[in-house]
Amino acid sequence: MWVGFSKSLGGGFRVGVGTRIGGRSSRRRSGPTQAQIAKLEKAQFIKNIAEESNQSLQEYLVNNNIDPVFAERKKLDLDDLLGKGDTASQYQKFKASISEVNEIISKVNYGGNLTASRKDRLVDLVFELREIVGESGPGLNELATQISKKSEKTSIITFSVFLSIVAVLMAVGSFVDDKPITGIADVIPLVMGTGFVAAILYLPAHLVIKMIAKVKYNRQAVAKTKQQYGLA
């Protein structure tokens, strides 16, 4: 089973449903017909199932220490990575479920009817995928959580440092201007000004730190994938 996320899921799972509501005629103002509404609802249902399955696939890979972006870029065959050893049994269950989702959606997209039994089966399969994902362990999710917590902690520290620096600079500035702080009336503007400047500085600093954290996660995720599966 090959990996593809942007347009396909394992084994060529593609979903491309476009539905137009209403005609072009300016004379027609009665709105969409029941048939058109039903067609739109069908397309939306298929789209939701596809997105849910895609999300489950990515989470399943992450939980098995496979970076999804790296897997897609390198066109990794999951059968070679997960189809043997301790992960084989669970992987075969996941593969069977997502392959059945693929098969049903392919038939519907080709022109088959989205019957009540097919809808029920797709919903059951989505929940089966969720259950398997839940049993597959934290994997790279744990790594992402650790890096996220560190980045948040760093952001708070950075904010505190900015706040302290601005406060000191403003205090020094008041003494340079021969206007020493003599009471609470002088403190309030200082605190408000410090908070305002620090708030302005915090957002770009926070975004930069989050970007660095994302880059760090991507590198570690790829490294962990290569290490676990012996990839060059």
Rank of each mutant, 00 (worst) to 15 (best):
M1L: 12
F5D: 01
S6C: 12
V17E: 11
V17F: 14
G18N: 15
G18C: 09
G22N: 12
R27P: 03
R27D: 15
Q36W: 08
E51G: 06
E52G: 06
E52Q: 12
L57I: 07
E59A: 13
V62M: 06
V62G: 00
V62W: 01
R73K: 14
D77I: 05
D80A: 13
T87F: 03
Q90G: 07
K95M: 04
A96K: 14
N102D: 10
E103I: 08
I104A: 03
V108S: 00
N109W: 05
Y110C: 05
V123A: 08
D124A: 14
F127W: 14
F127V: 14
G139V: 02
N141A: 08
A144Q: 13
T145C: 01
Q146A: 09
S151G: 03
S151V: 05
T154P: 00
F159H: 09
V161I: 15
V168T: 09
K179H: 12
P180F: 07
I181Y: 03
G183P: 00
P189F: 09
V191D: 04
V197L: 12
L201G: 08
L203C: 06
H206S: 11
K214Y: 08
K214R: 13
V215R: 09
N218G: 11
K224R: 15
K224F: 07
T225L: 05
Q227L: 13
Q227Y: 11
